[in-house]
Design a protein around this nucleic acid. Sequence first.
DNA 1: CGAGTCTTTGATGCATATCAAGCTTAGTGG
DNA 2: CCACTAAGCTTGATATGCATCAAAGACTCG
Lengths: 243, 243
Amino acid sequence: MGPALNSQTEAWAAPLERQLASHVALREEHRAFVREGLGEVQTHEPEDVTLGGARGARQPVLLAAGWAAAVAHLQDGRKQIVSLFLPGDIIDPALDLRTGLTPQSLTSVRTVEARRLVAAMSEDLPGALQPLLAAWTLSRAAAESRLVRQVIRLGRLSAYERTADLLLDLQERQERAGLADGRGMRMPVTQEMLADHLGLSVVHMNRTLQQLRRERLIDYRGGRVLIPEPARLDAVRRRLDEK
Amino acid sequence: MGPALNSQTEAWAAPLERQLASHVALREEHRAFVREGLGEVQTHEPEDVTLGGARGARQPVLLAAGWAAAVAHLQDGRKQIVSLFLPGDIIDPALDLRTGLTPQSLTSVRTVEARRLVAAMSEDLPGALQPLLAAWTLSRAAAESRLVRQVIRLGRLSAYERTADLLLDLQERQERAGLADGRGMRMPVTQEMLADHLGLSVVHMNRTLQQLRRERLIDYRGGRVLIPEPARLDAVRRRLDEK
DNA sequence: CGAGTCTTTGATGCATATCAAGCTTAGTGG
DNA sequence: CCACTAAGCTTGATATGCATCAAAGACTCG
């Protein structure tokens, strides 16, 4: 289960660069700065809990490929996936793994050491890099908002609504990272993982996905999801009231 | 529903000072700095949504007395109380109210303007104030952890476990603020508010509280809760597995 | 003392969990 | 290339936790 090394830090930064650029337009100078803050590439098998290093010595990493999660384990075996990490996301132990959460790869995964980048973003940056900092901040804010959204989902939405809401969120995130478009997105995780994220049993997760499929709100097969008419799915999800 | 003014910024800082001191020992110098960062005192009726100012112009405030909440309203009238604020807590719009959450008083409430204090804590502080900054940071981290804990509660705990977990959390927070001890704590909110926080119906909230009462895990009457044997209640709550 | 708000109780229904088993798919080794 | 296996997906039957509906006590306040 140990990670395999790989030292070519090449275009692994693309999803991160795109995600940042989706918030604030960036120049090549900014993208280069991002790449320079990255280090070693590592490959991890699914279920690996050593993302960012061993427990107690974890460092920030960029998730370059594959999906990962911050997981809470209860004593009796129940699990809650608190948040999902997609390619282009930064997994920062200091921010994302408070409270004894364990980072874990869900699929096989490629991570890139990002300690220097994360450190740089909390220091004073030269004026020319301000747009980068702004993008970084917006990206972090989006991650925090997702946690709030997750509370609302689990607290007040039905299984059906939760699922619609999550799928739209995943689609949007992958679009920002350049990993999805009108022709669909990857969804390389098992229904059990989705269930653990949405607080449902596997069986009910399956039935809920089938219902969405039957009503042609999603087209889900072979680890891919297509949302033919986003507006219809969006009507299922319950929006916050802008009171 | 509008707020009433009141300009004596006296000992309203006590719960905040105690909460901070519960994380890192503080000297009078630190406490004085906290008080100097505070401004006008305001009184609000229950259900007031103008804590910290009107929508769009909200400023950080210290909650000095009474309970408040960050609430999400769904279009069809469902509500989710995402987080609770207790005396001594800072309500910072930039951190606590992302994603269209509305701050709202649950009881009648007293707030103190805290813009200067919050701003000061994000600037470079003289060395002598480092302990204060450390306490502040720990206090914020605890608030963030509570959000994660809330996801776990709603996602994977039963109504009974959720309630036990929340009550222990409230007891600990109030102890830190000097508002509770072995003789119990205040709980000035309606069961409907608790239900909206724990993702339950009022009726089921009521039955769950009664069950805890019947089993003598809590003594709950007249807006006060006593936990006679914390260890027993703690056994009900499901702890995270320290794997 | 009357009117609202909150709590409590009972009856009923539904969403979701649990249990059990069959099916499908992708590996794996012979 | 074909069993064989294991993981994941799907389906049916049943159980249960929690929601909903309705109404009756308890408090609180003017």
